[in-house]
Design a binder for these strands. Structure first.
Length: 568
RNA sequence: GCGCUGGUAGUGUAGUGGUUAUCACUGGAGCUUGCCAAGCUCCAAACCCGGGUUCAAUUCCCGGUCAGCGCACCA
C-alpha cells in the first residue's frame, strides 16, 4: 500500500463513517472548509477535553471565550493589518502572480511595510520583469490573509476582521485577567475558531480557512521565572534545533542546561505538549519539536518551536507552535490603546528614593501658555522635560516649549517606592486541533489480515478517546435477544457510555463495522444470556471474548476505559 | 491565483448526442444464520453547477466550481 493509497483510504473511511467531509457539498463545496460528522465531532470534543485537562486543570490556567470577530484596532495593534499581508504583483502578459517582496529580495533589496507606491517605484526603477515570460509587471496589490467584515448597518461604521488567532482576545483582556490571577506567572487559555483566507488551501483538512485552535498565553515575569521544572526535568523529547541538522533525544533538563532551549517556559511547555499528544494516542516516535528558522518566525515571535507529527501522506506536519512572544503584544496594545498594561510587583520592603521633582509655578506658566498649560502640567507629572542651561525644555507635538528658570523650581523629595511595574513576557503554546485529529486518525489506522483471508480495517483509538464507547448486539435478530439487548443498552447509557446498538447483518459484519469506527468493545447477547445473565464482551484489538455478568458490565467497561488512559 | 488532468448512487466504477444509465461494495426490509465482511429474495440510491450548440446534451463547446498534480502561497 503506497502512502497515497493509505491516505485515500483514510479520507474515504473518514467520510464514510462520519468523521468529516467537505463543507457545502450540496452547493459544490468550497475549498478550505470541512464539516465534522457524528464521530468526528465526538473525537474532536474528546481531544479538547483532554487539552483542557492539561492546561486548565493541571496547569491551573484561566479560561476565556471571546468573539471571533474583532475590531480592526485589535489587529492594527497586533501587527496583523500591517504584517499579515502579501503584496502581490501580476504579469500583464502571462498573468502569473508573484509576491513583490520576493522579487525585490531576489535582487538583494530588502523592503518592509505595505506602501504600494514604494513597491511599484522599486520595481520600475530596477526594471523588474516577469521572471517567467519577461512581460511587464502590473500594479501592486495588497492581499491580507484576514477575512474582513463590517460591523453594524452602516457600511462605513466600524470595520472588523475574523480573528486569525485567538490570542488577541486574551491580550486585550490582560488587565482584568491579571487581576483575577493576582500573581505571575499565570496562564490563560482559549479554544475557538480562527480564520485565515488562504490563497489556495490544499491538503484537505490540513490547511483550512476556518479551523479550531487551542491556545494558552502564559504571562511571565521576565526577571524572575518562578517556574519549577522538576515535574518534567527527566522527561525525554525529540528536538530538532535550528543549528543542528538532525533530531536529538534529550531530557528537558539537559535541553535547558545546554541552552538548546533558551526559555525555561518554552522548554516546560514542549514537555507538556509531548505529554498531551502521547496521552491522546499519538505514538511518541512520531512526535518531534522543530525550532523555527529565523526568517520563518511570525512577526511577533522571538523564538518558536513547532510540535510536528510524522504522517504518511504529508510528512512532518506542524500541529502546535510554542512561541516566545516576548512583550510584543502587551506593548503593542499598550501603545495603540494608550493604556498601561502592566503588573505591579511589590518589593519585599519599600525602598526610599531621593528624587528631584520639577515643580511648576502655575502663576507664571498659566497666563504665559494659556490653554497649553494643562498639557504642560500633565507632561511634567509624567516626568517629561529636560533641563538645559537652566531652562526647562518640553515637547508638545512638534512644538518646543521652553520654560524659563523661575517659572519652575526643583525640589528634592524622599519617595517611598513599594514596587515596580512589569510588562510580562508571553510564552504561547498554540495547537491546531484539526491537524491533531487527522494525525490521530492516520496513526490509529491499520489493516489486519484475518484467518479467512479477509482484511479488517481498524481504528485503534485508546478506549477513552474512541467516539463510540461500546456497541451492543443481539447475536441473532430474535425478539427475546433484541429485548434483552435494548435493556443492556439502557443499562450502559446509565454509566454515561455512548452506546451503539446494531442488529443488522451477520455478527461478523457488525464487528467489522465497529472496528472501522474504532469502537473498543462489543457486547453480544445470546440465548445463554437469558439463563445466566452473562454477555460476551469482545475486544477490538485482540478480538478475544470474555463472559461478563450483566450486573458487573458497566463497571467492567468503565475500568477498561479508565485503564486505557495510562497505556502508552 | 496560474497551468495540466479529471468530476456518473454513500464508496469504487461501466457506458452513451435519442425509451427505463452498467456492475460491485455499502445501506435498508425479510428469510436463513449460535460469535468475526457467508447465502437467498426484495428495496433505496447517481450523470458537479451555469450558459451555448442541437429537434434532443450526462455525452460536444465555453465559463464557474471542486479534486489531484506542478508553480506560487502557507505570518
Amino acid at each position: 500500500m503506497t502512502e497515497k493509497e493509505k491516505n485515500d483510504k483514510i479520507i474515504n473511511l473518514a467520510v464514510r463513517k462520519g468523521f468529516f467531509w467537505k463543507s457545502f457539498e450540496l452547493y459544490g463545496g468550497s475549498s478550505g472548509f470541512w464539516d465534522y460528522g457524528p464521530l468526528g465531532s465526538i473525537i474532536k470534543k474528546k481531544i479538547l477535553d483532554e487539552w483542557m485537562r492539561f492546561y486548565r486543570i493541571k496547569e491551573g490556567f484561566l479560561e476565556v471565550d471571546t468573539p471571533t470577530i474583532n475590531l480592526d484596532k485589535v489587529f492594527v495593534a497586533s501587527g496583523h493589518i500591517e504584517n499579515f499581508v502579501d503584496i502581490i504583483v501580476k504579469c500583464d502578459n502571462c498573468k502569473e502572480e508573484y509576491r513583490a517582496d520576493h522579487l525585490l529580495n531576489d535582487l538583494g533589496i530588502d523592503i518592509e511595510g505595505t506602501d504600494l507606491n514604494k513597491y511599484e517605484e522599486l520595481i520600475e526603477r530596477n526594471n523588474i520583469r516577469c521572471p517567467v515570460c519577461g512581460g511587464k509587471l502590473g500594479r501592486c496589490q495588497r492581499f491580507n490573509l484576514m477575512f474582513e467584515t463590517s460591523i453594524g448597518v452602516d457600511r462605513n461604521n466600524r470595520s472588523g476582521y475574523l480573528r486569525p488567532e485567538t490570542a488577541q482576545g486574551i491580550f486585550i483582556n490582560f488587565l482584568r485577567l491579571s487581576r483575577l490571577a493576582r500573581t505571575l506567572p499565570f496562564g490563560v487559555v482559549q479554544i475557538g475558531k480562527a480564520y485565515r483566507n488562504e490563497i489556495s488551501p490544499r491538503q484537505g483538512i490540513i490547511r483550512l480557512r476556518e479551523f479550531t485552535i487551542a491556545e494558552a498565553e502564559i504571562f511571565i515575569d521576565p526577571n524572575e521565572d518562578g517556574l519549577s521544572i522538576d515535574k518534567v526535568a527527566d522527561y525525554v523529547v525529540n528536538l530538532f534545533p535550528r543549528d543542528y541538522n538532525r533530531e536529538i533525544r534529550i531530557t528537558i533538563k539537559e535541553a535547558i542546561d545546554n541552552k538548546i532551549i533558551r526559555n525555561k517556559f518554552v522548554a516546560y511547555n514542549i514537555a507538556i505538549a509531548n505529554m498531551f499528544l502521547t496521552r491522546i494516542g499519538i505514538p511518541n516516535e512520531k512526535i518531534r519539536f522543530r525550532q523555527h528558522k529565523k526568517d520563518e518566525m511570525a512577526h511577533y515571535a522571538s523564538d518558536c518551536w513547532d510540535a510536528e507529527i510524522k504522517t504518511d501522506k504529508y510528512g512532518w506536519i506542524e500541529v502546535a507552535g510554542i512561541a516566545d512572544r516576548g512583550d510584543y503584544d502587551l506593548r503593542s496594545h499598550s501603545i495603540e490603546s494608550d493604556q498601561e498594561l502592566y503588573i505591579f510587583k511589590p518589593f519585599d520592603k519599600p525602598i526610599k528614593v531621593k528624587k528631584n521633582v520639577i515643580k511648576p509655578n502655575m502663576d507664571i506658566i498659566g497666563p504665559m501658555f494659556k490653554d497649553k498649560s494643562p498639557l504642560i502640567l500633565e507632561k511634567l507629572k509624567k516626568g517629561e522635560g529636560i533641563i538645559k542651561d537652566g531652562d526647562l525644555h518640553l515637547k508638545i507635538g512638534d512644538e518646543d516649549i521652553i520654560i524659563k528658570n523661575g517659572a519652575y523650581s526643583i525640589e528634592e523629595t524622599d519617595e517611598e517606592v513599594h514596587g515596580e511595574k512589569i510588562v510580562p513576557h508571553v510564552v504561547e503554546p498554540s495547537y491546531g486541533i484539526d491537524r491533531i485529529l487527522y494525525s490521530l486518525l492516520e496513526s490509529s489506522y491499520r489493516e489486519e489480515p484475518l484467518e479467512n483471508g479477509e482484511m479488517r480495517v481498524v481504528l485503534g483509538f485508546k478506549a477513552f478517546m474512541s467516539p463510540i464507547d461500546v456497541a451492543v448486539f443481539p447475536l441473532l435478530p430474535k425478539k427475546e435477544l433484541i429485548e434483552k439487548s435494548k435493556e443492556v443498552t439502557e443499562l450502559l447509557k446509565s454509566y454515561n457510555l455512548y452506546v451503539f446498538y446494531d442488529d443488522n447483518g451477520s455478527i461478523g459484519r457488525r464487528y467489522r463495522r465497529q472496528d472501522e469506527a474504532g469502537t473498543p468493545f462489543c457486547v453480544t447477547i445470546d440465548f445463554d444470556t437469558l439463563d445466566d445473565d452473562k454477555v460476551t464482551v469482545r475486544d477490538r484489538d485482540t478480538m478475544k471474548q470474555e463472559r461478563i455478568k450483566i450486573s458487573d458490565l458497566g463497571e467492567f467497561l468503565e475500568d477498561l476505559i479508565e485503564q486505557s488512559k495510562s497505556t502508552p
